[in-house]
């Protein structure tokens, strides 16, 4: 904790001085090129990115585990309970990794949560039902399932215990199909994690009304109230990005989440310093 405060203070004080020394007229020369190719107005973004990369990579490859330094976003026990429920009731598990393309980072974060769900499902022989909306995400989900099954020594699992397919590329047609499947097959556990729009509530409500235990993860501010209202556990905003890493229980991933928190505290400090500086400047 002391180290992170020290790093924050150093960066907040040192960074502006370094910027001022390297690019003394950044604001006046916005849009100019440095060395003929580097846009001067992107200096702050570039330095922030290098800083971000350095902190994450440094923490990720540290020998020490920082797992105890962060709060538990979602206990793995929750997913285990959901899958256990499916196994006891003889019902399938629904997994939808958002309705966007792989270029949305939320989709990848959703797949990371799906990876843990699939692991638990393989352990308890639970059927995975995964209607997809994007035809680029569908093969990724399929190969994720095959990889996990291979690692668990169950190469037969994808063909006997899963149905990953393209439902529809149309927003509400996809939601309609998911709601229909939830109604007919009465899933025991439903995981909706990734990028969603208005169709999210239809799927969440259909799952809840049919007695499924629901885990949702969404980073869209507009969809957050619906996720809270219609699911048993909702991962909101950055929690979606941290959950997959934390659930995996891998040291490097957990450490990188700690680095993420450190960067956020740095941003918070910079915001307060900036607000104070602006307020003081207004008096002169």
């Amino acid at each position: 904790m002391n180290r992170s405060i020290l790093i924050n203070v150093l960066l907040v004080v040192v960074l502006p001085i370094v910027l001022l020394l390297i690019f003394p007229y950044t604001n006046q020369h916005a849009g100019d090129l440095f060395l003929g190719f580097f846009p001067v107005d992107k200096t702050v973004s570039f330095i922030a990115l290098v800083l971000l990369i350095s902190v994450i990579v440094k923490y990720a490859y540290e020998q020490k585990s920082h797992a105890s330094e962060i709060r538990e976003v979602i206990p793995r026990k929750f997913i285990r309970e959901g899958i256990g429920r499916c196994a006891e009731m003889g019902r399938p598990c629904m997994f939808v990794p958002g309705t966007s393309s792989p270029s949305d980072v939320a989709t990848i974060a959703g797949l990371a949560i799906g990876s843990v769900t699939i692991d638990e499902a393989i352990d308890l022989d639970v059927f995975i039902d995964s209607p997809q909306r994007d035809y680029m995400v569908m093969p990724i989900t399929k190969s994720l399932l095959e990889e996990r099954a291979m690692l668990k020594g169950r190469p037969d699992y994808p063909s006997t215990h899963s149905d990953v397919f393209l439902a529809s590329t149309v927003q509400f047609t996809h939601a309609q199909l998911v709601a229909g499947r939830l109604e007919r097959d009465r899933h025991g556990f439903a995981v909706f994690a990734g990028m969603f729009w208005a169709e999210m509530l239809i799927m969440l409500e259909a799952a809840t009304m049919n007695g499924a235990m629901v885990l949702s993860g969404v980073d869209s501010v507009v969809q957050m109230p619906f996720a809270v209202a219609a699911s048993d556990k909702a991962l909101l905003g950055e929690e979606l990005y941290a959950a997959g890493a934390q659930l995996s229980e891998e040291k490097r991933l957990v450490n990188s989440v700690v680095a993420q928190d450190l960067i956020k505290s740095l941003l918070f400090t910079a915001l307060i310093v900036g607000a104070l500086a602006t307020t003081i400047q207004s008096f002169f």
Binding site: L49, L52, I53, I56, V57, A60, V105, A106, I108, A109, L111, A112, S115, V116, I140, S143, L144, L145, E146, E147, R148, M150, L151, D219, V221, M224, L236, G237, E238, L240, Y241, A242, G244, A245, S248, E250, R252, L253, S256, V257, A259, Q260, I263, K264, L267
Partner: peptide, 28 residues
Amino acid sequence: ILIGVAVGMLATNIRIIFGIERSWMGGG
């Protein structure tokens, strides 16, 4: 919330680019 999301997105992107995050392709 948006600041948190932006940091989370950036961190996830970095994890993917540097091969720290591999769960999306099936491996730990």
